[in-house]
């Protein structure tokens, strides 16, 4: 793993440095923390909602094709 890491590190020195500098400025900032906390919740809930809605749509489309007596569980 360290070997793979070493490769990546050498290839992406510049990118790493940029991220590190960015992080040093931002860690103390509570506003930044809140922004990421909210982003986290929104992303997770939105993803779950998207999956649920698409699943429901697909279920409805499929259910229309199946005769009533084959879906007694509803």
């Amino acid at each position: 793993m360290t070997a793979v890491l070493a490769v990546l590190a050498t290839l992406a020195d510049a990118a790493d440095a940029a991220v590190a500098a960015d992080a040093a400025v931002a860690t103390e900032d509570r506003g930044f923390q809140w922004a990421l906390v909210l982003a986290c919740w929104v992303a997770v809930l939105a993803a779950v909602a998207l999956v649920a809605v698409r699943s429901a749509q697909r279920g409805r489309r499929l259910a229309r094709q199946i005769p009533e007596e084959q879906r007694r569980w509803m």
Binding site: A20, T27, F32, L36, V48
Partner: peptide
């Protein structure tokens, strides 16, 4: 899979604040 994706996303954002990077190995 959906829940694990949520775990990864929330973990990466948390890592960004706490460790300063989205991902460590």
């Amino acid at each position: 899979a959906v829940l694990l994706a949520a775990t990864l996303v929330s973990g990466m954002l948390w890592g960004r604040v706490t460790w300063g990077v989205y991902w460590t190995w």
